[in-house]
């Protein structure tokens, strides 16, 4: 479905990605783990078209989308929940969700999806009139995911959905991520919490200073000694 080939991306003056390649197949959950500054978010931003690679290709369904602007890429069915959630703070919860469906014209479908999101996250329905900026961290994460779902993505990019959340909320959100995947959405998940990410994903890539150093089925990587040492905190 998505194939990233040897991309080099510059962020400010930094050569952030030095030839990253990865592949995501329909229906999978693929995770990207690595430490701070390894280039995980840059990879997602390059796929979404916010950043453009200096070299390399990003193939979605076989066509190169590396140099398309971000707002066009959303139209192809790639939605992102960015790092830090980026809720629009002075728009209501309902308006935030509506903006998630900005490019869609099928009123009936949008209405159904809105109901689905409220079903998935009942707390958002309660707070639908509240401004986005007033929600708690966990609620904001739910809103961010809900908003991305409103775009009916074929591929959902999730950047650190566990960041700064209480363990019980994290557990709930990861449950929902798996459910979204079961309902037919392909997912690329970026996480620092490797344990969690390897637990829910089918395959994984390890990113270190702008390069993919390891990749394979998540279950195998979870037992890999290097991964255990570097990311799972074992001695």
């Amino acid at each position: 479905m998505l194939k990233v080939e040897e991309i080099h991306t510059y962020y400010d003056h930094i050569h952030a990605l030095k030839g990253v390649s990865l592949e995501i197949r329909e229906g999978e959950i693929v995770c990207l783990i690595g430490s701070n500054g390894a280039g995980k978010s840059t990879t997602l931003m390059t796929i979404s078209g916010v950043l453009h690679p200096a070299r390399g290709r990003v193939l979605f369904d076989g066509q190169d989308i590396a140099h398309r602007p971000a707002d066009r890429i959303v139209g192809l069915g790639i939605c992102q929940v960015p790092e830090g959630r980026r809720i629009l703070p002075r728009l209501s919860v309902a308006d935030n969700l509506e903006m998630g469906a900005f490019l869609r014209r099928d009123r009936e479908g949008i209405r159904q999806d809105l109901e689905k999101v409220y079903e998935l996250f009942p707390v958002l329905a309660e707070r639908r009139r509240q401004q986005g900026g007033t929600l708690s961290g966990g609620e904001q994460q739910m809103l961010a995911i809900g908003r991305a779902l409103m775009g009916r993505p074929r591929l959902l990019l999730l950047d650190e959905p566990s960041l700064g959340l209480a363990p019980i909320v994290v557990e709930k959100i990861f449950g929902i991520i798996q459910q979204i995947n079961r309902d037919g959405t392909t997912i690329l998940l970026v996480e620092q919490n490797a344990n969690l990410a390897l637990g829910v994903s089918d395959r994984a890539y390890v990113l270190e200073t702008g390069r993919v150093t390891l990749s394979g089925p998540s279950r195998e990587l979870a037992h890999d000694e290097r991964v255990r040492k570097a990311y799972l905190g074992e001695q």
Partner: peptide, 10 residues
């Protein structure tokens, strides 16, 4: 500087 830098690295 930025352009020159990106080019050089590119």
């Amino acid at each position: 500087a930025r352009e020159a830098f990106a080019e050089e690295e590119g």
